[in-house]
Design a protein around this nucleic acid. Sequence first.
DNA 1: TACTGTACATACCGGTTTGTATAGTCGGCG
DNA 2: CGCCGACTATACAAACCGGTATGTACAGTA
Lengths: 204, 204
Amino acid sequence: MAAPKRRAEGGPGAADRILATASALFYERGIRATGVNTIAEQSGVTKVTLYAHFGSKDGLVVAHLRARNQRWWAEFDGHLAGCATAEERLRAMFEAYRSWVLAGDFRGCGFVNASIELTAPEHPGHAIISDHKEGIRCCLEGIATDAGCRHPAKAAEEWRLLLEGATAIASLRHSTEPFDHARQAALRLLPTAHPGLDGGPERS
Amino acid sequence: MAAPKRRAEGGPGAADRILATASALFYERGIRATGVNTIAEQSGVTKVTLYAHFGSKDGLVVAHLRARNQRWWAEFDGHLAGCATAEERLRAMFEAYRSWVLAGDFRGCGFVNASIELTAPEHPGHAIISDHKEGIRCCLEGIATDAGCRHPAKAAEEWRLLLEGATAIASLRHSTEPFDHARQAALRLLPTAHPGLDGGPERS
DNA sequence: TACTGTACATACCGGTTTGTATAGTCGGCG
DNA sequence: CGCCGACTATACAAACCGGTATGTACAGTA
């Protein structure tokens, strides 16, 4: 058995164990590729218990996305803590992603992956995914504002594209390089070098 | 019946019909979410015929990726034809992606989506996906060279991140805006404004 | 005429999917 | 003590998965 059938004193309860294994498997193998049977087995729990806690597989998927979002921001705040200037925070942002690749279990953005797998557009998971991405954009806009950009929203939008693109390419090549390139490009777009111009002449 | 059982005179053969429907369904609904039964039905063909032509579902997936790659480059060449300068070609690149969203059936990059769904790292599809992405990078590097960049490879890498990120975000929001932002950022990174400097001061 | 290639129809294989029904076991608490 | 909530074990349903076996119909060709 992978886990004790009966909750060890002080150990995590069934619901926590289920959510933890589901979160891991959904990210590592994909949502569709992971069956509820496997999740139940791996968490040392019966399917009945799983359904008593989460109602359906979709319910478990939603719980997984919520939990992942929380974990993401917790880890992220840790990376950004102690950054004084806006540029430092921008660097930390890319560095956070970079270290994520090094952690080993990197398989791209779990939210983007989920949104691809969740074909039904009305799936409640999509709202969580949108919120997550909007949160990142918002965070970047704060950095742009603090950096004195004239158009912070625009800068944030461009940085987020670099971040997102680097995540996609890093996932394909299993490399940290894309984040180095993305960081360099982002800093070059940072208007510190060209104050009041958002990084350069206005072109479209 | 969706299609005539027997090949109409001059119409596409069974293999072509199978590949066409499979390609459409794999992209629109996802690979795992599309069963061979559905593909056979939709193309007006029996499963036996499908297996006679493609051997297995994986074989069909590979054929789909190959076909999609060919179609992609064909359409792409059309967009780039008639562009004189390097900047025009760069603009056309983003414009091609933009018009793709407008076409209606946009659901992100089919190759990135496939690579997420094809969990097994040894799946032959991954090689096709890598080739596709490398082809784009190569195309961008050509543009960067023609534009007189000192480090064309670097510029190409950055542009591709913008392109890839815009595709991901556009897929989430079903909007053409990401490509506008990406194009603007790419042009700002273009060294035309700062010849010999690859778009600005060297920062890292 | 005889053969070959292509596609047909039908039925089946073992396995997996999500989800449920039923009955039993255990620990803690009033 | 009795009860309740959390959990287990087993079994099942109904659909679907990729893939195969058997046999037939028809067009073209040597």
